[in-house]
Amino acid sequence: MKEMHKQILRVSITLLIVGLAVLLGHMLWVRYMDSPWTRDGRVRADVVNVASDIPGLVTEVAVRDNQYVKKGDLLFRIDTERYHHTLTETGARLEQRKITLALKRGQSTRRAMLDDQVISREDREDADLITLAAKADLDQAVAEHEHARLDLKRTEVRAPVDGWISNLLVRPGDYAQAGEAKLALIDQKSYWIYGYFEEHKLALIHVNDPAEIRMLGTDFVLRGHVESIARGITDRDNPTDVRLLANVNPSFNWVRLAQRVPVRIHIDEIPEGVVLVAGMTCSVIIHPASSSKS
């Protein structure tokens, strides 16, 4: 009888430890795999591709690489000579049209004072219409002159936002095409975090949930909140071929990888000493609002 009691004790101690191991293992698994956190987070920022509005030779680059610029600061200058000439040309045309208008207007008033026996009614009406046409020509010349003035102003390319110049490749002597991006300007106020969460964790994440962001390899913790969740990602298994037929990738039935969905995190608080660089890696931990209340 005593032997049997001893045997039961031995078995139950062992089974207790095994049961505890299973329980703890399950807890860690849930904590690690099913709680809303990801090691795949990225710092992102809006980048403005600064382009010249007008074509021409770059004569001066006023900024250095990685320089901080304020909105409205000069970035680079396009050769102005051609645009000065255009301005002079349109100015001359404007003057010419003004004189023409004065001439036609004089003719028209003079003719209006004459009666039907001296001048035909047709001539008189024509003179009025010619004046109106001259007025329209003048308006056109004014617009062209303003256009030339604007072009001249746009030879100075200025910063559209506060931020940092990045990867400056434009040099004096380069030819700038109109609308062709010449340098990248990172918007200072636009930094945000993209956390790429596995699809099965999305149910645990809600807009406005507080988030904790840890930069890779450092102890810095940034605070933020969930701003929005992406509503679509590319289906990588179904690109079309040249004949527009579906090209479905064969996949294993056994192992399936969860897709990652971008969750946009707004940064609320940056500790001192942290320099955010767009493209940095970070871990994102979401604290669901419901669990933090309880």
Partner: peptide
């Protein structure tokens, strides 16, 4: 006082790792 020594060791190891984790 242990039934299967290897099973007990494995369970103990998993318990320790999971608690630390």
């Amino acid at each position: 006082h242990i039934w299967y020594r290897a099973l007990f060791r494995l369970g103990l190891f998993i318990c320790l790792v999971c608690s630390l984790g």
